[in-house]
Design a protein around this nucleic acid. Structure first.
Length: 713
DNA sequence: GCGAAATTTAC
DNA sequence: TAAATTTCG
């Protein structure tokens, strides 16, 4: 092996002298294969690999039990890989990632910090600030794309604007003029840096009460990048070929089950993409039409993941705010009993209940069933979608902020190409679609196991004799429907009418000039279709953003914020000569530098900034404008989390200091607009006034659900 | 080969 | 739900 390693160092011509030590900071890129940050560290000389556990920085998105279990396993796995390559993963418990990194850099004598990009709202902000800070301290900071086929800023329409619908986005990805970067091989050997003065902390990811449940997870899942790789190969050689036929079945057998691996970056999407494409070529040559189509469909689901990052990057508050402005006026039903019934799988709709019980028992749900249960949550129960999103976050093994935000916005009618707001799905019909023989329901709802298929998805219609024979006593051992579908439809219509009315009132208030310096609102297009409504969001924010100098509006919009990270990239490109394509791609988005932005806008010529910087003005604009403007934000809960009141558990969304949308955005305009609106419509406070609800940790799910039959194994 | 009916599928 | 596509007579 020494021969191999020396050749790998000599073939890689490097700008950097080989005595340098680099800190490689692992996050959600827990693999040694196709890991550009690690590769850069190896190329530069000695490497210190580090993982920092700072969950407090995640604000309300402290990882749930199953997620933490996966993480701990995956880190263990990564560490053994790194050990076999010659180094050890340093683990640190931290309350402040930036200062911990700085400590590590100092105690190891490192000169470089390398890491891979993340695109969730919290990381965008944190990484940017951290980069500024460490750079100011003289550390050379570089970051890379390890998570996506293309960086969000690479994919634009013919006018250079980001896409706002998935199909157009994905078509563009598939027809880019250049291919995604070729996956990098794992390093053959890692020269360890000096870590003698940089001890690891022991990271604790589970407490005693969680150990039992976690032990069950290990029976079904094998975290870690090598296992991920095996799963990928197994999938490509097996279920992938039948994917187009089987993907609609409610049980997971036909899906790839790769999402947790992908979430933690154990698997490179670029490798997935490459291998699937190669398989597709083979299938095409064999004339296997269905197999070829299967590959397209599977890649499309990879595309959705890709799109979720794109969406998060361009709309960084998507985890907190509906993209379409009118959704803010939807009168959500604040009902903790509904919420509890949904969580426990006791809604009286078998498909929904089966899904919720599977989710609880295994941390897993088929994509279709996720749509069913979340659609039921939003349209039938009319609970606030962010409650559901938070519950998914706490319970899904592959909980992923970007994907979940996209999914819930899609379900709640918040996307231009999402489901229509007024469309209500009937779980009974969907049951026969996704689980035609009722096997899925019977597996997760043993109390209905003996019910004939004819009635399995609508037991309330079954004759008494049938129910008796099946041992089902509705309202006793299985609930009656929590809401009748007809009632749900009627209530949804009412709610929508109310929403549009409130929206119109609010608009009128805005147009009456209660806001100073908002410019001419007559320029705004009216909201009719979702598409136009979507445009309205952007227009309005744009308008608010640039209100002080409306004459320079267009120019401002096109000017990105200039940051030192950009300057560094350019310098490096010059000094590095012809580096590889991956490295020369744009750096982490720097539009997160909100406070400085207005100053910088005035300092920087528009065309220059636009030409050199990947960040789209659109993103900047959303970062700036999508600031808190609701009652929930003014309720002043210092840290958003879960609160407990009486027996119910309900999420609270007043953002904590670390929240991307509260700490960073300058407060003015938008907030005033809606508080004045709320003054005039006090009853509408109930829309989002979740500050009244009480708080607890997500562990309360564990308590409440211990009563359920545990169906795993 | 044509129009009607059935089926599919949304991110 | 509704548009698009496929199947059927």
């Amino acid at each position: 092996m020494p021969g191999g390693s020396s050749s790998s160092t000599t073939t890689t011509t490097s700008c950097c002298n080989s005595s340098q030590t680099s800190v490689v900071w692992f996050r959600r890129d827990l693999r040694v294969e196709d890991n550009p940050a690690l590769a850069a560290g190896v190329r530069a000389g000695a490497v210190v690999t580090v993982y920092i556990w700072a969950p407090e920085e995640e604000g309300p998105f402290y990882p749930g039990r199953v997620s933490r279990w996966w993480l701990s396993q995956s880190l263990h796995h990564l560490n053994s890989s790194l050990r076999s390559l010659g180094t050890t993963l340093i683990t640190k418990r931290s309350l402040d990632t930036a200062s911990t990194l700085l400590d590590i850099v100092h105690s190891t004598g490192a000169t470089n910090l390398f890491f891979n990009h993340l695109y969730d709202p919290l990381s965008l902000v944190r990484d940017h600030q951290l980069k500024e800070l460490l750079t100011a301290q003289g550390v050379i900071v570089r970051s890379f794309n390890a998570d996506l086929l293309y960086e969000p800023w690479e994919v634009n329409d013919e006018n250079g604007h980001p896409f706002t619908t998935f199909a157009s986005f994905w078509n563009k990805c598939l027809s880019m003029p250049y291919d995604p970067a070729t996956p990098l091989l794992p390093p053959k050997r890692i020269v360890p840096g000096d870590i003698s003065r940089c001890p690891s902390d022991i990271l604790v990811f589970e407490d005693e009460s969680e150990k039992g449940s976690n032990a069950l997870l290990a029976r079904a899942w094998s975290p870690g990048w090598r296992n991920a790789d095996k799963s990928l190969t197994a999938f490509i050689n097996g279920p992938l070929i039948e994917y187009s036929v089987n993907r609609r079945k409610a049980d997971g057998a036909s899906t790839s089950l790769l999402s947790p691996h992908l979430h933690f970056g154990e698997l490179s999407v670029r490798k997935v993409f490459q291998l699937v494409r190669m398989k597709q070529l083979v299938l095409t040559n064999e004339g296997n039409k269905a197999g070829e189509e299967s590959c397209d469909l599977f890649l499309k689901s990879i595309g959705l993941r890709e799109y979720s990052r794109y969406f998060s990057f361009n709309h960084p508050c998507s985890h907190e705010k509906p993209l379409l402005a009118h959704l803010r006026f939807f009168p959500w039903v604040i009902d903790e009993d509904y919420f509890k019934a949904w969580r426990q799988g006791r809604t009286g709709y078998p498909l929904v209940d089966a899904g919720m019980r599977e989710l609880w028992a295994t941390g897993w749900l088929h994509d279709r069933i996720r749509v069913v249960v979340s659609s039921f949550f939003v349209k039938v129960l009319q609970l606030p979608w962010r409650w559901g999103m938070k519950y998914f976050w706490d319970t899904l093994l592959d909980a992923d902020l970007e994907s979940d935000a996209l999914g819930w916005q899609y379900i709640s009618g918040s996307l231009p190409d999402g489901r229509e707001l007024d469309r209500i799905d009937n779980p009974q019909f969907e049951g026969y679609k996704f689980d035609p023989n009722g096997e899925y329901v019977r597996r997760w709802l043993p109390e209905l196991a003996r019910l004939p298929t004819q009635w399995i998805h609508h037991p309330w219609d079954a004759p008494e004799s049938v129910l008796q024979a099946a041992g089902v006593e509705l309202g006793s051992n299985y609930p009656l429907p929590i809401v009748e579908m007809d009632a749900a439809k009627a209530r949804l219509q009412e709610a929508l009418a109310q929403m549009w009315q409130l929206e119109a009132t609010s608009r009128a208030a805005l147009e009456n000039g209660t806001e100073e310096g908002l410019g001419d609102s007559s320029e705004l297009p009216l909201i009719d279709s979702p598409d136009e409504a979507h445009m309205e969001v952007e227009q309005e924010q744009f308008r608010i953003n640039n209100s002080p100098a409306s004459g320079r509006r267009h120019q401002d919009q096109m000017v990105p914020s200039m940051t030192s990270s950009l300057v560094r990239v350019e310098e490096e490109e010059v000094s590095a000569g012809s580096g590889n394509a991956t490295e020369n791609r744009a750096e982490v988005p720097s539009q997160t530098d909100y406070e400085m932005q207005s100053q910088r806008q005035t300092e920087l010529p528009a065309d220059q900034g636009n030409a050199t910087h990947p960040v789209r003005a659109n993103a900047t604009q959303h970062f700036n404008a999508a600031r808190p403007d609701h009652a929930e934000h003014s309720m002043g809960q210092p840290s958003a989390s879960w609160r407990e009141r009486d027996s119910g558990v309900v999420p609270v969304w007043s953002p904590p200091a670390t929240s991307s949308c509260s700490g960073i955005f300058v407060t003015d305009d938008a907030g005033t607009a809606s508080s004045s609106y709320l003054d005039r419509h006090p009853h509408s406070r109930q829309l989002m006034n979740w500050g009244q609800l009480s708080q607890t940790t997500s562990r309360s799910w564990e308590v409440e659900n211990t009563l359920q039959p545990n169906a795993i194994g």
